[in-house]
Write a protein that binds this DNA or RNA. Sequence first.
DNA 1: CATATCACG
DNA 2: GACGTACGTGATATGA
Length: 915
Amino acid sequence: MTKQHLYLVDGSGYIFRAYFSLPKLTDPQGTPVGAVHGFTAMLWKLIEELNAAEAPTHLAVILDAGAKTFRNDIYPAYKANRPPAPEDLVPQFPLIRDAVRAFSVPCIDQPGVEADDIIASYALAALAEGFNVTVVSSDKDLMQLVQPGLDIFDPMKNIRIGRDGVIEKFAVPPEQVGEVLALMGDTSDNIPGVRGIGPKGAAELILEFGTVDNLLANLDAVKRPKLRDTLAEHAENARMSRILVSLKDDLPLAVPLADLTLKDPPHGPLGAFLTKHGFRSLMAKLGREMEADAAGPEPAPDVAFTHKDYETVTTSERLAWWVAEARTRGLVAVDTETDSLDATRAALVGVSLALEPGLACYIPVAHKKGEGLLAEAVEQLDIPTVIAALNPLFADAAVLKVGQNLKYDLIVLRRHGVAVLAPYDDTMLLSYALDAGRGGHGMDELSAKHLGHTPIPFKAVTGTAKAAITFDFVPLDRATEYAAEDADVTLRLLGVLRDRLWREGGTRIYETVDRPLVAVIADMEIAGIKVDRAALARLSAAYEVEIAALETQIFELAGGPFSIGSPKQLGEILFEKMGLKTGKKSSKTGAWTTDVTELERLAGDGVEIAAKVLDWRQNSKLKSTYTDALQAQINLATGRVHTSFALAATSTGRLSSNDPNLQNIPIRTEMGRKIRYAFVAEPGHTILAADYNQIELRLVAAIADEPALKAVYAAGGDVHALTAQEVFGEVTRDTRARAKTINFSIIYGISAFGLAQRLGIDRGEAARYIELYFSRFPGIRRYMAETIQGAKDCGYVSTLFGRKTHLSMINSKNAGERQFAERAAVNAPIQGTSADIIKRAMARMPAALADAGLTGTRMLLQVHDELVFEVADAEVEAASKVIKTVMEAANLPAAPLAVPLAVEIGTGASWGDAH
DNA sequence: CATATCACG
DNA sequence: GACGTACGTGATATGA
């Protein structure tokens, strides 16, 4: 093994050099980052150069803590002539610490002492341990330290300074540099020294007398009288200066030497840091580096999946080892096993960790054996022990945590007292950023696609259907094979997907939108929303009465009982038994269509049973899907309903909501809307609903760059009225309603047939409207054509923020499939940009509320263009302002729009009242 | 497990 | 000239 070599970087010098020598720069948030950028680039270059030439084993960056130091106690004027740090440099200091950490390099400072003292202390400690040491600094004070095994690297001049170098510069050896410095003084540090004595004179004296003390004790021996008098006069200054320039080299080491081990910069945190501050050239550099890594001469051989090698962790010692190893490596894949798919109810059963391909473990915490009431716990660590061990790991800012659908694990772990903090990555979301529209993003699918490996199916360990057991009853050996493999797969997926993300793009949407949303949405799901169970029960009862009455009437009209909920039976009754009209369409299966348009047509013709069935359907839909189901979904522990938002379910970037779906709670009919009044605020709180006004149409205007539409939004006008005027020549209640349908048809990818159907006109007339529309708004036609062509060329379309939606059928030979893909291509950038915007608002919301001191305000739900909050009554006014501001500016600064975004806010005791 | 229907944006 | 008919979701009941 080669000798350990510690590099100590004097960070302060880098910072000031970066600040003064480089142009000003601000990041996307508006923070000045010129020095941060310069510092980051210089540190990176240094690490590269050191790696190329010297092979350091240990590295730390040392910074000044900024406060007063012990030298000020000795000499209040110490450094008093220094101007304060420039105003725009001050906010950059913490960011520079972030930069250092992003490289996974320890960043050390200590109040009361200077960076030089820390450097001296670490240097001597390392030498005592047998290390070689190099101090990276241009500060002459540090030259005192040079000795066998310790040299200085001056990054400004790019030279190494050893004993000879010091003698060349000061004419004295390193051990006497302090003496020389004391006589010389230092104007920049306000160290007085002895007036009139410069480097030459000081060196001469020290060469003759050895030390300042000896010189002052033997002033008689100084030959030149003038000089002798000066020395006598400033003897006190000289003594004090000698103390000021000496380095304190026996400080306790805040971070042990062993923790300064140099690692490869972890790409995840570094990428996140660079992206956050918009350091594009450095991002490109990281991308190239990762590409080179990926294509390097020694690609890591694929490690086969050998499940028997996974470890079952059942002792504190082994647990401690895995945690320590994970922290040393700075990367850990994590997966939790539970007894339920519902993260807000699930009990933790075990945790698996993976550190490198093939190196993974499973930590059981709640496994049982036996059956039912006779079940007894198996031998395993208890939950408090495991939680205490995992918390420091998952909260460590120097460790990248990676999960597959990490939101689930975040929620389960949080509910058990474990916080998982940034930095983290989610392989599901990486896949989503890369491959939206190209299939699912579940682990088994990703593993098969990217690793060529089919993981053990969940059902293979728990059994199926009736015979299924929960994971806590899976024997430990099988549980370990399954669970550790999931963490292993996740870790391997990270490698594959992260590399692709850099090469193919998508880092912006992943790192600034989807990834930060994981923690935000986890909080929303944990919060849940209060539902008034009694109100729902009353509605259920009312619907039930109505359903029963309608059923009787329907059976009477039909001439006998049948299953009204069966489209097949209903079709037969209506169109065969009753021989109603021309039983219109029939679908693929050959069954009669009985959907709402068909029944409305019949009802319009005076068919009473059709109207009754429509009414019956509405009542039974509301009862079964909403009032009954929602009561069953109330979490007994919280008294609230906790939906799950799927982050990677849609092809366009939208969220979806399930178990229960809270994004399709009725509102359009008065009867259904009653259900919204059952979504209530806690006592002392108010429900606040904030929704974007016509966001998709506004985006069409902006993206298609259509002057007339942009103008009407800029002026706060009525687009539907404008369209009515342009297409129909007049604005009436009727033409405005039809114009509204036309406007929406644009968003969905217009077709004359579809528009004709919706407007109840013939196809030719619809085609004329469309043509008229396009001639009035030519930008729209151009946008549609360009978008479709772009999709055909690339296979995908993109939102304003770079989110891709792939359209595999865009060049299909099947006209139906192809046209379907073309309409989706037109729609996806609009729907997707809207999704990006509200997600950006959501990602920013918690900090914005916290910054405004609004601790009684929580974000609960998202419904595509609407955010729902629960707000302490006293905060309603302030929260409204913050929410509106954040939402209306959510496109900025990344994508300025030529139309304003408008957010409307409503408040009330319930969701129904807030609209 | 697929189909039809209908709730939402 | 034919194709099939507005984009994106999730829950429920029915029936094979």
